[in-house]
Design a binder for these strands. Structure first.
Length: 239
DNA sequence: GCGACAG
DNA sequence: ATCTTGTCGC
């Protein structure tokens, strides 16, 4: 039985809202994981009526790629702020199932607890997989905050309705900050530490950059990939 | 009622 | 997300 069979899937915005309200209490925020050897970056790209999800596993110490997988499907849910996960989760779960490695941490493109109902994509994905997960958003969604210092490493809290739901983190001196938050089974300090460790040279973590590249490539080659058969010759061999 | 709103 | 030229800066 697939993990997806264990949970109902909404067919409307109202159902999606209700499901989030029901699952939000299951999210765990804890000081783990104790040891992170492999980190998985996930991202999704769109083209026409296709959605391509990519997962790239990196060695946490060297940031070198270990394994990757992609899944191209048809979008089954519209993009609605706050219900973003229902649009990308199906393809992301498909890609994750094609992985042999079980990552120690999932780094999602989007928010976790820094969400209207404290249940963004990173929380949902962490909960469905049972794996530690964190969210890294490129743009603001919710929470009052002051600008972090200009230098790499500085950060400030994201406060929504009196609750610290995430942080703005300057991953490179002089660039715009990213918005990070807990997804599942990690805490805010670990999330902050990881996003900085994963972003040695650019604004976005290597996990996200690699997954972004892979998901785009998957859309460019509809029926071929790094491990597919070569294209047929214009003049078939034989005779 | 109006504004804001991940990808 | 995606559509898109030139342009500022290291």
């Amino acid at each position: 039985m697939d993990i997806e069979d264990l949970h109902p899937w909404p067919s409307s915005a109202e159902e999606g809202l209700a499901l989030q309200e029901r699952l939000r209490g299951l999210v765990r925020e804890e000081p783990g994981p104790a040891e992170v050897r492999t980190v998985a970056g996930l991202d999704v790209s769109y083209a026409d009526d296709r959605v391509a999800a990519a997962v790239v596993v990196l060695d946490a110490a060297t940031l070198l790629p270990v394994e990757s997988a992609v899944a191209v499907e048809r979008p089954s849910f519209p993009y609605i702020p706050g219900l973003f996960a229902f649009r990308e989760l199906p393809a992301l779960l498909s890609a994750l199932r094609r992985l042999e490695t079980v990552p120690d941490l999932l780094v999602c493109d989007g928010h976790g607890r820094a969400h209207f109902r404290r249940f963004g994509l990173a929380c949902h994905l962490g909960l469905l997989t049972g794996l530690p997960a964190m969210g890294v958003g490129k743009t603001f969604l919710v929470g009052e905050h002051v600008e972090p210092g200009r230098e790499r490493g500085s950060f400030t809290d994201l406060v929504h309705e009196g609750e610290v739901v995430g942080r703005t983190v300057r991953t490179q001196t002089g660039v715009r900050p990213v918005y990070v938050s807990v997804g599942h089974r990690v805490d805010l300090d670990a999330v902050t530490r990881h996003v900085l460790a994963l972003s040695p040279s650019y604004r976005l973590p290597e996990t996200t950059r690699r997954a972004d590249r892979l998901s785009r490539e998957a859309l460019r080659a509809p029926e071929s990939g790094p491990a597919s058969a070569p294209p047929p010759a214009s003049a078939p061999p034989g005779r």
